[in-house]
Design a protein around this nucleic acid. Structure first.
Length: 287
DNA sequence: AGATGATCCTGTATGC
DNA sequence: TGCATACAGGATCATC
């Protein structure tokens, strides 16, 4: 499941490969167009706004990939469009793969961005939880909802984490999964951060001391940076691949390790359920 | 307002 | 062996 480190790995690879590349045309699967769940209502407009544009750069906001589009250099800038952004969210099973045009097409390929050279950027998503849309650059942030702060930004400190948690009595595990509290953190890295911070997932948000908030903030940054450095997490039942189809090298210390010995103390990792979502922790290390 | 639970989807895993 | 059911997940929305 792509979270911040997985999306950042894809962003970084694609940025180096695609900066300046021209998207000759776009095709979107009929299934994607017709499913009300994808909210993909304007196929013609989408194709026209993306097709023929160059990729000026690729940014990331939380788990969203932002392709900055610009007119290709050979074409005079015309009305509008210079500031459009293609927004891609991978949902839980989405992949963006950069392949040669002759590469065999996988099932569930829902969008193909055909580049002016011999390559294609393919969006695949079996469970169709992903999202694709294009919008003006000035309107990107508002279209992302009330997305919380970027956890790897230097201005993300325990002081920015404190206010949204102060009013909550919910378990800290649930709050970390709320994108309004912090962007880009999902079920894997929230478990990892709480493990790193030695905090019990069921601790009430408003019970955390300033010292514990500092530990948690630092832990979030540590586990996300480690995830990026190791090019993301691919679990046995996860589909995550980078843009070239390779697995991630990160190995969680808590998530998905029920029964395994804690790397800190050796006690078995325990699995619990909160709001229908599972969490994993060391009952001895995490208080 | 905050908390809770349902919802979208389908491949994989488990249970009988 | 075969079929049925459970589960995984991010973000959003309805309903307390």
């Amino acid at each position: 499941m792509p979270e911040l480190p997985e999306v950042e790995t894809i962003r970084c690879d694609l940025e180096s490969q695609l900066r300046g590349a021209v998207i000759a045309r776009v095709t979107v699967s009929r299934r994607w167009q017709e499913s009300p769940h994808t909210r993909f209502h304007e196929n013609r407009a989408f194709r026209q706004r993306v097709g023929g544009r160059a990729i000026a750069g690729i940014d990331r906001r939380g788990k969203y990939l932002l392709f900055r589009l610009s007119p290709p250099r050979s074409i005079l800038p015309t009305r509008g469009g210079e500031a459009d952004v293609l927004v891609v969210h991978l949902g839980m099973s989405g992949q963006l793969l950069l392949v040669g045009r002759q590469a065999r097409k996988e099932p569930h390929t829902h969008a193909v961005f055909t580049l002016a050279d011999a390559r294609e950027l393919r969006f695949e998503d079996p469970r169709m939880f992903g999202r694709l849309w294009v919008t003006e650059r000035a309107h990107v942030e508002e279209r992302l909802g009330n997305l919380g702060p970027e956890p790897l930004a230097s201005r993300f400190t325990w002081r920015s984490l404190a206010p949204p948690l102060a009013k909550r009595s919910t378990p800290i595990k649930s709050a970390l999964l709320d994108p309004r509290v912090v962007a880009g953190v999902g079920n894997i890295y929230s478990d990892e951060a709480l493990f790193e911070a030695h905090l019990h997932p069921r601790r009430a948000c408003n019970s955390l001391s300033p010292d514990e908030l500092r530990r948690l903030t630092r832990a979030i940054k540590v586990v996300l940076r480690r995830g990026v450095r190791r090019r993301g997490t691919t679990l046995s039942d996860s589909r995550y691949r980078d843009a070239f189809g390779a697995y991630g090298g990160n190995e969680p210390r808590a998530y998905g390790r029920e029964g395994d010995p804690c790397v800190g103390c050796g006690a078995p990792i325990v699995r619990g359920v909160l709001g229908g979502r599972s969490y994993h922790f060391c009952p001895r290390c995490q208080k």
